[in-house]
Simulated assay, not measured.
Amino acid sequence: MAISGLGGGSVFTRLAQSAPGLKGSALLSNITSVTIGAQAAGQNELIVSGIEKQIQRLQGFNPNISEPQSRRLAEARAEIQQIERNQSPAGLSERLEKRRIQLFEESYKILGKRYVDIDSNPKLKAIQDKIDKLLEPPLRGEKQARLERLRKLEQNYQRQFFRNPKNESNIRQLTNTTRQIASLVPPRLFNELSPAERREYDALAKQGNDIAGTEVFLSSQTQIKIESLQRTIGRFTG
């Protein structure tokens, strides 16, 4: 799970969807026009758009991009999605991974921010892993036991995969186990963390940002502001 300046891809996705033919507010229009009329629906869209721009600024992005830039983001986003659909449990080929990084770098440049590939930097990856662990919900009893069993299975399937990467049955089992782990320990919201946990996160975020030389990890205070704005959007979109 990524807690980076991209915010899990939300800014990139929203701005890409603002390109012609990919209106991110289409679903909102369909819902609200039925209940409160097209004019009010348009007003809600403006409010949601304004809140989304606040989120983008908090994440360090420039939301005021031109229409050609928006179209280019949509094209890059579509190509990234196509690349990631071809990803195996072992990852992407060197060629596709290089292309994926190029597309993210181009997209971030359009959005006014420098892209940092966390996975390619062992120090940043170690910090991200610590953050992911910190954000895991505390489990006890049977849930904790199940998580431990699933992680052992995952490790076993991973070893089998590297011995025989063409074993489709093992790939399906690995994918299914990974999904079960993700559903069992979804990351907590930042407003659910204790003050001590927020301090621990902020220390990790500062360490990561110092290593990267740019803002890769947002502060817990900024993350909480974003969560609040996202809840406000939820009230408008149902």
Rank of each mutant, 00 (worst) to 15 (best):
G60E: 07
F12M: 14
K123C: 03
L218T: 03
R140W: 04
K143F: 12
E52I: 06
A38T: 14
E45V: 07
A145C: 14
L6M: 07
I110Y: 05
I83P: 03
P187G: 03
L229I: 01
S18M: 14
K143L: 15
S25R: 02
I101Y: 06
R85A: 12
G213N: 05
I83V: 03
V34D: 11
T35S: 13
I110C: 03
I171N: 01
E94R: 10
R188S: 08
T222E: 02
T175L: 10
Q144S: 15
P187V: 02
G234C: 09
S70V: 12
L218A: 02
E148A: 15
F236V: 04
N64L: 05
L150E: 07
Q59L: 09
L135K: 04
Q221G: 10
L218Q: 00
N44I: 15
L174I: 09
A182N: 14
G7T: 02
L58Q: 03
T13P: 00
R114F: 11
S228F: 00
Q207S: 01
L27Q: 15
Q54N: 11
E52P: 07
L139T: 10
G60K: 02
A16D: 08
L184P: 10
S70A: 12
Q59S: 10
Y201F: 03
L96R: 08
S169F: 05
S219K: 00
T237N: 01
I211T: 12
I47L: 15
